[in-house]
Design a protein around this nucleic acid. Structure first.
Lengths: 344, 344
DNA sequence: ATGAAAGCGCTAACAA
DNA sequence: TTGTTAGCGCTTTCAT
């Protein structure tokens, strides 16, 4: 069964170039005669033909492949991001190689090296620390890289991130507007740029509402996990009564916080108002008033992808930060209102 | 900056063969002299060296790459499965190419063709219909394939799946054991082998408990989605009062079902007992007694990976079905008990 | 213990 | 309009 252009060429009696031109759909462009094209196309249709990507890459020094590096694939946010990127790649004839780093800088380095060694044409990375990957590549290699989700202050790569400050502001405002006294902001991994932004937004909303003690409201813990949420709620409960309202830096933290509430006081008081980053249908399980800030993963994916294609195309674009807005969602409540999203 | 073996060879004065042997760590095996090895290794350490995978693949007709094809990457189950596989690949020097099909057979075919054209050495697929991919490849190509999650009855590929029947049985038993009258089993995509298995388990548990009308309890809908859950709960509520207990074929269906309950009767009655497939921390948001059946994605990943490596190694292994047990988890409740998982 | 050379399948520059 | 050719960087076989 013919597979290579050489074989098809031999069988049709034409040369490899002619066959290749036709196979790649450039017959018109190079004015291959109708008759020739017909013969070759028929042969291809009957026996099939797939370009050998390895050979192609070897020649072109390009793999039509891009790499995605994320901290945690089983995190819904990154899964959706990847899903979006995968679709975009498919539309452009690219394939996506994905690695996860488990928030570990060493693993991140290794993943990036490995992807580089595999010859990916470019990289989209959600870095777990200020990214600086130059040393990972050969000296004069220049790998197009765009950062997503996390814009570290002095990063040298263009980045595409959500508007965490604005989201923190809007979310906190919504919680404050219920009139319930604000009791705490539970933060996991406060050193991440995303979380730092959310904290700034929280602070701004508090100041604007005249919440004097907002600094004391922020409880931090190194990890972002369910356990972290439990710990933080535990700390709060030791200081006094259950919170009238609180905000969480992530869904996992909220899950932990509510678990602890149940353990300590037997239930989640239904009048407690909650705010959280990361939206999920299951927030509707709660009878409480819940506000959640939902990121637009599709938008992040397409902007990051566009940015990378820009770099790939060779046009030099200066490190640039692109910002995508969140959506505020109202969840929970005694009855479900149609998820009323208000763009920011 | 030297990168290719040829360059290093030229710079050290040795031949490409010698350099390659040393670079690949086969110096001892081929008794390269200590001195030579030292010189070459030093050169490599200083200037770095990465094999060119494209060239290597071209020569070896092997890419050290495997493909994963799943219906939906943003589904937590598949995201975790992928995460596990990615880690296993990393440990074996492979890379994983992932595509999603959106439950669309055409996209599935395209994804598989594309992965094949990219030269993946093998494929792990969660098929969206009885898989038969022979026609997608060149006539005499033989692509190692293992199916995961979904074992279609007359599939010709080895498969690794969860024990859906047993899980349906155990989950339904747990719900029945609470004493609450069982009102419905909401099923999305009942034609999937996974769901069919869950239904069989449900039926068995009902029969063993003397539930005579179990056939009428099963409400089906083509889709597996939040909307499907809403529809099904809507149907049930039209027939009568809110359910004392019900089981859902997936988390999304449960989410939809509870949403509809809230809309119709203003709240989720806390005494309702629920059973669901797919476990998630957020089930603890519910004050209800909730049982969930959790799949072991890591186990599925490692068994599928092992099976594929078996095929890759050339040993012929007959189509075989490997079964992984679920874990029954107790969630929700007035207070959170330590997630008491009972293996099946 | 080390080297030379062929060839994997493709592309691009040039030739006819 | 079509054909010829030279590599891309690696592995492998055979020579030395």
């Amino acid at each position: 069964m013919p597979k290579t252009v050489a074989e098809i060429a031999r069988e049709t009696g034409f040369s490899a170039t002619t066959v290749r031109l036709i196979a790649n759909g450039q017959a018109g462009k190079y004015r291959i005669s109708e008759a020739t094209a017909k013969i070759v196309e028929e042969q291809i249709r009957r026996y099939g033909f797939v370009v050998n990507h390895a050979a192609r890459s070897l020649k072109l020094k390009r793999t039509d492949t891009i790499g995605l590096v994320v901290p945690e694939l089983s995190n819904a946010f990154f899964a959706r991001l990847m899903s979006g990127l995968e679709e975009l790649c498919r539309g452009s004839g690219l394939v996506l190689l994905t690695s996860s780093t488990n928030e570990n800088p060493d693993l991140e380095d290794r993943a990036i090296r490995s992807l580089w060694a595999r010859g990916v044409d470019g990289l989209i990375v959600a870095p777990c620390r200020t990214p600086d990957y130059g040393r990972l590549f050969a000296k004069n290699a220049k790998m197009p890289i765009v950062a997503v989700d996390r814009a570290y202050p002095d990063s040298r790569y263009p980045s595409v991130v959500s508007d965490n400050v604005e989201a923190g502001l809007t979310l906190t405002r919504a919680v404050l507007a219920t009139g319930a006294p604000l009791t705490a902001f539970f933060c996991g991994q406060p050193e991440l740029p995303t979380i730092a932004g959310r904290i700034r937004g929280f602070a701004a909303a508090c100041q604007e509402a005249g919440v004097a003690d907002w600094k004391e409201l922020i409880l931090r813990t190194a990890e972002n996990s369910v356990g972290a949420g439990r710990t933080l709620m535990g700390q709060l409960l030791e200081r006094g009564r259950p919170p009238a309202s609180f905000v969480c830096s992530s869904l996992m933290v909220l899950e932990g916080a509510t678990q602890r509430l149940k353990e300590r006081i037997g239930r989640i008081p239904p009048e407690t108002v909650m705010g959280t980053f990361d939206d999920q249908e299951s927030l509707d399980f709660l009878p409480n008033r819940v506000f959640s800030a939902r990121q637009n993963e599709r938008e992040l994916a397409s902007l990051a992808f566009a940015q990378l294609k820009e770099l790939l195309s060779g046009r030099i674009s200066p490190p640039e930060q692109t910002i995508v807005s969140f959506q505020l969602v109202r969840r929970g409540g005694a009855r479900c209102e149609p998820a009323a999203g208000a763009g920011l």
